[in-house]
Design a protein around this nucleic acid. Sequence first.
DNA 1: CAGTATCCAGCAGGATACTG
DNA 2: CAGTATCCTGCTGGATACTG
Lengths: 141, 141
Amino acid sequence: MDTAAPLPQEGTLPSSGHTDVPAGASIAADCPAVNDVLARVGDKWSMQVVMTLADGPVRFNALRRAIDGISQRMLTRTLRALERDGLVVRAVTPSVPPRVDYSLTELGRSLREPVRALGAWAIAHRAAIEAARADFDRREA
Amino acid sequence: MDTAAPLPQEGTLPSSGHTDVPAGASIAADCPAVNDVLARVGDKWSMQVVMTLADGPVRFNALRRAIDGISQRMLTRTLRALERDGLVVRAVTPSVPPRVDYSLTELGRSLREPVRALGAWAIAHRAAIEAARADFDRREA
DNA sequence: CAGTATCCAGCAGGATACTG
DNA sequence: CAGTATCCTGCTGGATACTG
């Protein structure tokens, strides 16, 4: 799994100041905007939707089939929320039957990058996380 | 009605070296691990805690005061969840009164980076998001 | 096809009180 | 100080039925 980084547990010794992170780290946490975005991005379906739209416009039911497990209600709600935040645009083609395509805005596209970084982290460390959980649960039980 | 957004169809053809995202974008979405991490990271307090611990070990009540708004119950729960996932370690000093320090593990520290990226995105685009919301709400009302 | 409306279960999360 | 225990509320999200 990971590269067995030799970095010691900085947590064990508070005496020697700290390690590497300047106070600037706070930019990412104490600001309410971050928590806000995390809440939007962290819900059950938003990022699934954004990533499914990453390759281009997708119709409502195609989206629904692509995501697997999402209910019609939640897809609608999620899309509306994303649209409200300017991450997604809704394009209606008035035909019979009606056709509605959803696609990412430039803002929405810019979100893919940090999310992909988080996704990469998740994939890189999932094994470590699962191992930690198993370990914790074993000790707990 | 909308601003005649020219619907950027980047996904339809990979011919012109387009922007930046290969088909590999799917790595970040269809995998359940990502959703899982997003759920953990996206809850109300986890990232606040991780970022507060970024500078080194912090005691329980110090953490509680630092985060502002978190209830004792939620701090305990959040810390337990983070500990279970191997992101945080709990160090007990058996004294009277008892002293418990929490700090990030190497895994937890590695999480700061992608989270900081997301935080940077949030800060960079919060204005755009709020504008989009106001716009949407105005149209909606 | 692309929604809206309604109902309902479950859990996140706050408030409060008590304990080693 | 660092929790645990209990109660309670609101929101998230699923299921189902109906509509333009």
